[in-house]
Design a binder for these strands. Sequence first.
DNA 1: GGAAGCCGTGAGGAAGCCGTGAGGCGGGCA
DNA 2: TGCCCGCCTCACGGCTTCCTCACGGCTTCC
Lengths: 255, 255
Amino acid sequence: MNGGVNSSVNGSANGNSNGSARRILVVDDEPGILVYVGANLRAQGYEVATARNGQAALDAAALKPPDAVVLDLAMPGIDGYETLRRLREWTLAPVIVLSAHADEADKVRALDLGADDYLTKPFGVDELLARVRVALRRLDAYAAGAGGGVTGPVVDAGGPAALVIDLGRRLVLRDGEEVQLTRTEYELLAYLARNLGRVVGQRELLQRVWGPEYGSESDYLRTFVRQLRKKLEPDPANPVYLLTATGVGYRLRRP
Amino acid sequence: MNGGVNSSVNGSANGNSNGSARRILVVDDEPGILVYVGANLRAQGYEVATARNGQAALDAAALKPPDAVVLDLAMPGIDGYETLRRLREWTLAPVIVLSAHADEADKVRALDLGADDYLTKPFGVDELLARVRVALRRLDAYAAGAGGGVTGPVVDAGGPAALVIDLGRRLVLRDGEEVQLTRTEYELLAYLARNLGRVVGQRELLQRVWGPEYGSESDYLRTFVRQLRKKLEPDPANPVYLLTATGVGYRLRRP
DNA sequence: GGAAGCCGTGAGGAAGCCGTGAGGCGGGCA
DNA sequence: TGCCCGCCTCACGGCTTCCTCACGGCTTCC
């Protein structure tokens, strides 16, 4: 069932110097295409794995996850659509679909199933290479600029892992231990964390956490600030993280 | 299922109550194309801005950054290539290029300049819409995956093979034993597994597992979470894997 | 020096939320 | 056609969570 998996590392002259090469999985039942596309990709310095049917492709991908996939739709056994669907259950790696059908419905179907691009045979190899570059480039762009501009997903208040607010996972750690916070407690802390070091006014805090129609309920703040200090501060009576700006608001800081 | 539906999921946390529509900038010097493409995009629920030349496009994009751009290459004044280059100086928003030239060199040039896709006129509007969905979907995927994307086909929650979710084989193992899950149970668990460690909001969960038209059926969640805990947890009354974030959602974690 | 804010503290009540159990309904398979 | 499994529905009880209120000490301003 899983014959036809073939992997070869690029050892040639123009392999990239440091770090492992980008891994591309090429799937097609025509050996001609496989050799042709594979050779061209290797010439560009990519590491290429090939598979001749859907099952082999899934096995190869599971064995060593590729950075991108070039996938023919027409295959015996598990066809391209199904292969695509199964891949998308666990990986976001870009998939470029090859097909002999230029029919629009086919394209829409493949793209909506999770394909990133769709090339109609016969295609120019330069175009395929360019589209592979696009796929990998976008991967890099997001890997590098995750959060681009917005406050990072993790706010670290307090030097060596003393207090970590993981905004991405909605999790708060104190000395590496998870702290159990209620919804409102978390929302309040998160807003302060997004404004680390800045004094946030009471009205602003109330409006952002409770809603625009709030603003004068300073009772809420006192109650929840206290609650947070109980759970986060080493000595709640003498806070080092969550500080009061009397008459103004509160501030979260790095001690 | 998680097919190509575009839903604007609001993960969690702060104010962003309900996502405003995605903004698409359409640039072409032919009014016909502008109206045609614009109308079709609007019909899909997108917010559409249009520009009839490069300068207008750059101004419009600067004024209100679009989530994606549909860009014709042939324009008087600042042409498509130059517009693309100037856009790429400050934004990563996906750009889909339209062109009357099917020449491979043109395609490669545009793609290497930073375009994400290249369509040759005349094109089917369904295909264009599908490719817009692809661009936006990828944006979402990375925004969500920044917190904890799955790198391999197997998610291992719980140290020595206590709970393994094999997304590639669509299999769940508990202490090495296969666990029999129904379709919905599996889909729910799989989505949580793909977001291992992150608190997933109830609405997001419902929309991703049941469909975009769901969101307030917390009954479903309670029922299926319970079912899962029965099958997966050592002590269902005191879960260690599938945890509740009261008032927010659920989270799958490594104990 | 006195008065008025302002904040921290403590406790109590109401509502919301989750877990639980049971039952109806429809579709797939024999 | 009948059975069974899986999905949806509903009601209930308990616990958590949020809001409320009162008081006292400290600071600040008159």
